[in-house]
């Protein structure tokens, strides 16, 4: 029986993928170079600006935003002050700024790509049938795997890190946008249609506003996923807190690993609560 199985030669899946990748890198290398250089410059500029802000000002700013975003409650504001001070105190401030830039870039790109795809999915059952399995594939594939094409396209550094994070963090925004629009009550869609709305009017005046909180939940997921990818992306040279975790791992420094890991947790909690409270604000 096993002989019969063995009689079939190994299918050239790996070779094929490699060939495709080679072709892509070969044919589009000017584009990739451009993105790599442009992206790197933009991100370094942002990081530079963030680092230039005095830490005290930055901490107070975040605390203020947290205070007003949570309807003038002190909980998150105090947590932000204590948590950010801890990160500063441990000498990880610059790494934090790098991480923030990476998360912001990856999230914004994922949202810009994800929401239109989600809208397309909600409008066309054919598109949904095609995109859904792709999303499943993207979410079940281990995050590490995305590092390989990222390196192939962009070499090492921050841009491939963002690239891998975008792919990894994209699915929730797409899914939740689709879900949110499909969940708009049928009667309201009919109301919009019966008054002679165009497709765009219906989308902008009725569907997106009503899907808003669902889409925001997806964006919250996307932001957190891109943060979790930041650690992994440090393997291909993306700067930030992830790199500290990685180097602690490589040298078996439990203490340093814990410090950097805790910093990531603090940062994750702050952006999670902030994006969630943005969602609750209006309703």
């Amino acid at each position: 029986m096993s002989k019969m199985l063995d009689s079939i030669p190994t299918l050239p899946v790996a070779d094929t993928v490699e060939n495709v990748m080679d072709w892509l890198t070969g044919s589009f290398s000017p584009l990739f170079d451009f993105v790599q250089n442009g992206g790197k410059t933009a991100m370094e500029f942002i990081t530079g600006m963030l680092v230039a802000i005095p830490p005290v000002v930055f901490i107070l700013m975040i605390a203020l935003i947290a205070f007003f975003a949570t309807k003038r409650k002190f909980g998150l504001a105090i947590f932000s002050i204590v948590g950010l001070f801890y990160i500063y105190n441990q000498g990880l401030w610059d790494e934090l700024m790098n991480t923030i830039t990476l998360v912001i870039f990856a999230s914004i790109i994922a949202i810009i790509i994800g929401i239109p795809i989600g809208i397309l999915m909600s409008k066309s059952s054919v598109a949904e049938a095609i995109i859904k399995p792709i999303l499943d594939f993207m979410q079940t594939m281990p995050g590490f795997v995305y590092l390989i094409p990222a390196v192939a396209f962009f070499g090492i550094g921050v841009v491939p890190g963002v690239f891998a994070s975008v792919i990894f963090a994209l699915p929730p925004t797409v899914r939740f946008t689709n879900l949110g629009i499909r969940q708009v009550p049928k009667e309201l869609v009919e109301a919009a249609d019966s008054y002679g709305s165009t497709g765009w009017q219906k989308l902008l005046k009725v569907e997106l506003p009503l899907a808003r909180s669902t889409i925001m939940a997806g964006i919250n997921q996307t932001v957190l996923l891109s943060l979790s990818m930041v650690v992994i992306a440090s393997m291909i040279g993306a700067p930030g807190l992830g790199r500290e975790v990685l180097s602690a791992l490589q040298r078996a420094q439990v203490g340093n690993g814990f410090v950097a890991g805790l910093s990531l947790v603090v940062f994750a909690i702050i952006i999670d609560r902030l994006t969630q409270s943005l969602n609750k604000k209006k309703s």
């Binding site: 009550p185 009667e187 309201l188 009919e190 109301a191 249609d193 019966s194 008054y195 002679g196 165009t198 005046k205 009725v206 506003p209 009503l210 808003r212």
Partner: peptide
């Protein structure tokens, strides 16, 4: 069709069909 819907006929719904936002 849009012109007809905009100018000639309006609809009232069982569960009111009002936009909550």
């Amino acid at each position: 069709l849009r012109k007809i819907r905009r100018e000639k006929m309006s609809m009232v719904f069982q569960n009111f069909g009002l936009f909550p936002q």
